[in-house]
Design a protein around this nucleic acid. Structure first.
Length: 248
DNA sequence: AATCACGTCAACCGCCTTGGA
DNA sequence: GTCCAAGGCGGTTGACGTGAT
């Protein structure tokens, strides 16, 4: 037995939306507000699935949606947020006002993932330079290991050293759920002076020398992270805020 | 001009989460 | 605690546009 569909597909319109359908949907939402998506098509007189209405509104018709190309600043933020959060597009979208999760996801898949892969490929093997890496495990829940990580969050060893002559900026990476609610998988990777990481698994290291901002105090980051792990309530949100604070 | 290959992105699908009964 | 409806999310699909041959 398959799962019951969200609504009866019989007699429903599919495919691209027409301008008249758009108008009906927009007018209805202006009058009645968002929500009640399942009953909306009937009430508005649309031959569409409620989910389809919601998607059309969220990704295209909403008045606050920003159109046009992704700017370099936005692209930079997407890359950095993705390195922290993985494929949690809705979370990333919340940081880019006016952009939708679908748009960011598409942009990542069609533009950024390939570009970043090329960068990694070209730097592989001869890497005296730090890598701009994607955390493969972070984004895909199916590929995330089920709590059998090389170093469990609470047990991981982090070298809390600041390397001379200068400290490097580090990111805790893959702030994302693993298999169990409230367990977080965050690692801190540290660059050596030659740009290579000390820890080479799930590394997520960005060359920060060309970015504004001073290096972080590694001890402080680690202390804050440990403190967050001790606090049970709403750990997910706190870790995301923590990740956010590192982007500021 | 015709065909093919490839990239883009709107839309769909199915699973997960949440909240109320 | 369980069930169910509704909403939310990320992965995937496929139509369409465009450039190369």
């Amino acid at each position: 037995m398959g799962r019951a569909p969200c609504c009866s597909k019989v007699g429903l319109q599919r495919g691209p939306w027409s301008t008249s359908e758009d108008k009906i949907l927009v007018d209805y939402i202006h009058q009645h507000g968002e929500g009640q998506w399942r009953s909306l098509p009937n009430k508005a007189g649309l031959l569409r699935c409620g989910k389809s209405c919601r998607l059309r509104w969220m990704n295209y018709l909403r008045p606050d949606i920003k159109r046009g190309n992704i700017t370099p600043d936005e692209e930079d933020l997407i890359i950095r947020m993705h390195s922290l959060l993985g494929n949690r597009w809705s979370l990333i979208a919340k940081r880019l006002l006016g952009r939708t999760d679908n748009e960011i996801k598409n942009y990542w898949n069609s533009h950024l993932s390939k570009r970043l892969r090329n960068i990694n490929d070209s730097s592989a093997g001869t890497s005296t330079k730090p890598r701009l890496s994607c955390n493969k495990a972070a984004g895909d829940p199916k590929k995330r290991n089920n709590g059998t990580h090389d170093a469990a969050p609470h047990e991981m060893k982090v070298k809390v050293e600041v390397h001379q002559p200068k400290a490097v900026r580090v990111f805790p990476c893959s702030v994302s759920r693993i298999d169990t609610k409230n367990r977080q998988d965050v690692q801190v990777s540290i660059l050596k002076d030659d740009g290579n990481p000390y820890e080479d698994y799930y590394c997520n290291i960005m060359e920060e020398s060309d970015r504004p901002g001073s290096p972080y105090n590694l001890e402080k980051i680690y202390e804050e992270y440990q403190q967050l792990l001790k606090e049970d309530d709403d750990n997910d949100v706190q870790l995301e805020s923590f990740a956010d604070s590192l982007l500021m």
